[in-house]
Design a protein around this nucleic acid. Structure first.
Length: 929
RNA sequence: GGGCGAUUAGCUCAGUGGUUAGAGCGCUCGCCUCACACGCGAGAGGUCAAAGGUUCAAGUCCUUUAUCGCCCACCA
């Protein structure tokens, strides 16, 4: 019966089918509480802001490769998926959509707006899940989580209340980063600094002369933001600065505002910079805020939430901040108070999300004390309880933890976890939720144990804080909240700490560091000091970022983003996965390459066609009465390799040896996240070893008229193919699954993903036989080289001669004569008893043997051959000299390891023999000419 | 301003102190050989950014320089 192997490899035909199958049958549901070693990993939850991009694809491919690899090696494997509500980002997306209808969120009101965002979340989350399924992520969808679902809201409440009780969360009026577009405070991390060329204005502040500003005396201050001067409450000089000492205690007139402000001394001021006089605006500059505190200066906020000038801005009230700047500069000019304007390069802070210019501003917000939390985190990172790859990221992380500052966790948004604090309208007391219970109202969670009366004044007018938490607060709980924390669940006991976190290095501080700190703090308590079991992941791998072919960061707004689904349709998911993984060397970003993608597809195509070869040819065998079951059933495959006449055929043994070696390299490489190395090794095994040599070598055996011989060949081939597919599976899950199902399987075996990974210990092969095959390969290579050099008709069979001084090699050649003859396209192969003559033939040689194809004089370009020889001789001489030098060096002989010396001596001896041959051929060729 | 990284074949990049430094793509030559032209076979192509140092031995470790990136940072 003919197999159904389509003539052309068409990933579209197979991938969707298996993607659905894997999910429908819940093949990747993680079993609880069994004895095997476990491997658990939490998916970095994608934001529900849209769809999967190529960066997710890289991340998911790397995770999936490791997850499938572990699962196949017998680990009880959990990959827990889910999504992040992504407060500010999602709210931004929905607001933008509403804006197209001309609606603002305030028009809808909080409740209706939240309803709209939920609706969006359902759509976007659904799309992302479908994409992930389509891309073959082998996660456990039965455990899918969402950061805003009731169980996770409960975890947030629990964590918040604990931190609050412990005094690690506090509320206060401080300078924060304010995004006027998003109209919320944002954390330091969410401010992205950009170098921009702007202007710096030097402005004269007249000194007060009694009751009136002096016409002649003034101080010059510099500013890049003239609009903030309306909030100035002092000017400052360095206390050591002789130039200005005499002005201390005097006042200047703040231009435009007609406000007298003092000249103060503060060591913060750099005498060397500018004029050495600084205007102090405590309401709009973080440093000035600190100085203001030191000197008890008033703080004047001159702007509104949306960055217009407010009532404190005098005549400029109502103007947008940059319009105000223009007007102010103009007015100062008219009054002759601008001393000079210069171009100035400085870093401006922008909102990570919406790119608006961030305004430093005093505001009442919630903060988290980070220093106490950072200490244990530093410890686990420093002591290696948490293993970080690449290593340089470890330093970066430690550095950041060392310099950590408090975290502003409140956001003036509507989409997120509402802060579980109630404010008493009468006495302003803050009352936390009584416990972390949640109730479901209209399908969504909220705190259930709401305080009804104020414990301080007994008042009953309690209103919940209107702010929500920074989205990273809930993300920070992800590795344990998803497993049921704060309850002591079976999943939590079984899968926590997770084995590994794979994330992009761009969110190392945002997310990874916070998970470490929060996990250590919140889960440490029961076991008192047992950091190793509180840590949220034992290993951390920071993957690279995918860039455009030009090396630019991908960006949707610039249109340089790439849709992975589209690439999938064109090249296949397996090809895209393979391309990403094969380029994923730790620590280096990936430039997306269409060429590499094409190469990856060619690889998939190669695999497909190898399968076609096997099955199409087996059809012919089947016609003669042998069933597929007879040679390829799981039981038959398992017992391979099979021997013929008491000996395992050379190619079979060699191939299995290569497989074992490949598995060993793959295991080591994946264990160290060297995905590229693992992928390339697999590639060379399958293409080079399996297709180019093994299949080519065994073709005649498969058709051997001796039925027993043929059956052995088929059995070994099917077994090898099965193992090769399993080797490939973590990298290319779809094609390997598809082809694996073409083999007979036990009824209970539902997927290759649940079968064993090939072992490096099985049939590593004896070095003797592996070497024998390698020699045959080398001889064939020499023959082919001669043929190409002589420009022989590729179909023309020729006579060749072979000489080797080693009896073992001579007998090897006898044993493998037919293969050499066939792959070298020879008519005859003569084993000679003495060195081959250069005249009348073209010779290629190694230290071990030499091969000669006799020629008619006109088939070879003697001059070209001489050039080639000369070059080869030069290279060889160089190598020999360097070895002789080293070996002649006494210190080398004393200090180098014995193995290195022996290896070198062996190689030197061989190279010397080879050099003699080359020199002799050169001489003969010259003589003939 | 502080920190981190990169510089290797035409291009994109691997490379764990130890034989004459590798891969993919591209290039050259020859082949539609009954699995595959997304293929087969054979080749060409590199004073490893520069200089100095450590070492028996350096693409690999150290120092300096140059160029290009990235991250962090409150210099008006």
């Amino acid at each position: 019966m003919a197999r159904e192997i389509a003539k052309a490899y068409d990933p579209q035909q197979i991938e969707l089918r298996w993607a659905d199958y894997w999910v429908q049958d819940a093949l990747f549901q993680a079993p609880v509480r069994r004895s095997e070693p476990r491997f658990s990993i939490a998916l970095p939850p994608p934001n529900v802001t849209g769809s999967i991009h190529i960066g997710h694809m890289l991340e998911h491919t790397q995770i999936d490769t490791l997850v499938r690899w572990h699962r196949m090696r017998g680990f009880r494997t959990l990959w827990l998926p889910g999504m992040d509500h992504a407060g500010i980002a999602t709210q931004f997306v929905v607001e933008r959509m509403l804006a197209k209808e001309g609606i603002k969120r305030q028009d809808l009101g909080r409740e209706e707006f939240e309803r709209r965002v939920w609706k969006w979340k359902e759509e976007s989350g659904g799309v992302i899940k479908q994409q992930m399924i389509r891309l073959g992520a082998s996660c456990d969808w039965t455990r899918e989580r969402f950061t805003l679902e009731p169980a996770l809201y409960r975890a947030v409440l629990h964590a918040f209340l604990q931190f609050y009780r412990e005094g690690l969360i506090y509320r206060g009026r401080y300078m924060v980063n304010w995004c006027p577009r998003c109209q919320t405070a944002i954390s330091d991390l969410e401010v992205v600094h950009h170098e921009r060329t702007g202007e710096i204005w030097n402005i004269r502040y007249p000194l007060m002369d009694g009751k009136r500003p002096s016409a002649a005396e003034y101080l010059v201050v510099a500013t890049t933001r003239p609009e903030t001067m309306l909030g100035d409450t002092a000017v400052a000089v360095n206390p050591e600065d002789e130039r200005y000492r005499r002005y201390l205690g005097r006042k200047v007139m703040l231009p435009l505002m007609n406000r007298e402000i003092p000249v103060i001394a503060d060591s913060y001021v750099d005498r060397e910079f500018g004029t050495g006089v600084v205007k102090i605006t405590p309401g709009h500059d973080p440093n000035d805020f600190e100085i203001g505190k030191r000197h008890n200066l008033p703080e004047i906020d001159v702007m509104t939430d949306d960055a217009h000038m407010n009532g404190n801005a005098g005549a400029y009230a109502g103007l947008e901040r940059f319009a105000a700047r223009g007007r102010i500069v103009n007015d100062l000019k008219e009054q002759g108070l601008i001393e000079s304007v210069k171009e100035h390069i400085h870093a401006v802070g922008t909102c990570d999300r919406c790119k608006a210019l961030v305004e430093p501003r005093i505001s009442t917000q919630w903060f988290m004390k980070m220093k106490p939390l950072a200490e244990p985190a530093k410890q686990v990172v420093r002591d290696g309880l948490l293993h970080v790859t690449p290593d340089n990221q470890r330093t970066i992380l430690l550095n950041w933890l060392e310099n950590i500052r408090d975290w502003c966790i409140s956001r003036q948004l509507w989409w997120g976890h509402r802060i579980p604090i109630w404010h008493c309208a009468d006495c302003k007391e803050m009352v936390p939720a009584l416990d972390s219970k949640v109730e479901i109202v209209k399908g969504h969670a909220r705190a259930a144990s709401v305080p009804k009366t104020c414990p301080k004044c007994g008042g009953s007018k309690l209103a919940q804080d209107s702010d929500v938490l920074d989205t990273w607060f809930s993300s920070g709980l992800w590795p344990f909240s998803t497993l049921g924390w704060p309850d002591d669940t079976e999943d939590l006991r079984d899968f926590y700490p997770t084995s590994l976190l794979i994330s992009g290095y761009d969110i190392l501080f945002f997310w990874d560091a916070r998970m470490i700190m929060m996990g250590l703090h919140l889960l440490d308590a029961p076991a008192a000091g047992d950091l190793a079991n509180a840590i949220p992941f034992r290993r951390l791998y920071l993957h690279s970022l995918v860039r455009t072919a030009e090396g630019q960061k991908m960006s949707k707004t610039k249109g340089t983003g790439v849709d992975p689904l589209q690439l999938t349709q064109e090249y296949g998911t397996d090809a895209l996965r393979y391309m990403l993984v094969s380029m994923a060397a730790p620590g280096t970003d990936i430039a997306l390459s269409v060429e590499r993608l094409g190469g990856a597809k060619a690889f998939a195509n190669k695999i497909w066609n190898a399968a076609r070869f096997i099955f199409v040819n087996f059809d012919k065998v089947e016609e003669s009465g042998t069933n597929l079951e007879d040679v390829a059933s799981p039981g038959v495959r398992e017992k391979a390799p099979y021997a013929y006449e008491g000996e395992i055929p050379l190619a079979d043994e060699w191939l299995l040896g290569r497989l074992a070696a490949t598995v060993e390299v793959v295991n080591e490489a994946l264990g160290d996240y060297r995905f590229h190395e693992a992928a390339q090794t697999v590639y060379h095994f399958f293409w080079g070893d399996f297709c180019d040599w093994y299949i080519e070598w065994t073709k005649p055996d498969l058709q051997d008229s001796n039925k027993e011989r043929a059956l052995v060949a088929w059995k070994n081939l099917f077994a090898a193919f099965d193992r090769a597919l399993r080797l490939l599976h973590p990298f290319m899950p779809f094609i390997s699954e598809e082809l694996w199902h073409q083999l007979p399987q036990n009824p209970g075996d539902r997927s290759i993903a649940l079968k064993d990974y090939p072992s490096a210990q099985t049939h590593p092969g004896t070095s003797q036989r592996v070497n024998e095959f390698a020699n045959a390969q080398e001889i064939i290579g020499l023959i082919r080289n001669i043929r190409a050099e002589m420009k022989l008709d590729p179909k023309k069979r020729v006579v060749a001669e072979l000489f080797s001084a080693h009896p073992e090699i001579r007998s090897q050649v006898e044993r493998n004569r037919s293969g050499i003859v066939r792959l070298g396209l020879l008519s005859e192969l003569h084993l000679k008893a003495e060195r081959l003559s250069e005249t009348g033939g073209l010779i290629r040689s190694t230290g071990q043997f030499e091969v000669r194809v006799p020629y008619a004089a006109d088939t070879v370009d003697a001059a070209a051959e001489l050039t080639r020889l000369k070059k080869e001789i030069a290279g060889l001489e160089k190598a020999i000299h360097s070895k002789e030098n080293q070996l002649g060096n006494e210190t080398f002989r004393n200090r180098a390891p014995q193995s290195v010396i022996e290896q070198m001596e062996g190689a030197l001896a061989e190279q010397k023999v080879e050099l003699q041959k080359l020199l002799e051929r050169q001489r003969q060729l010259k003589d003939a000419a």
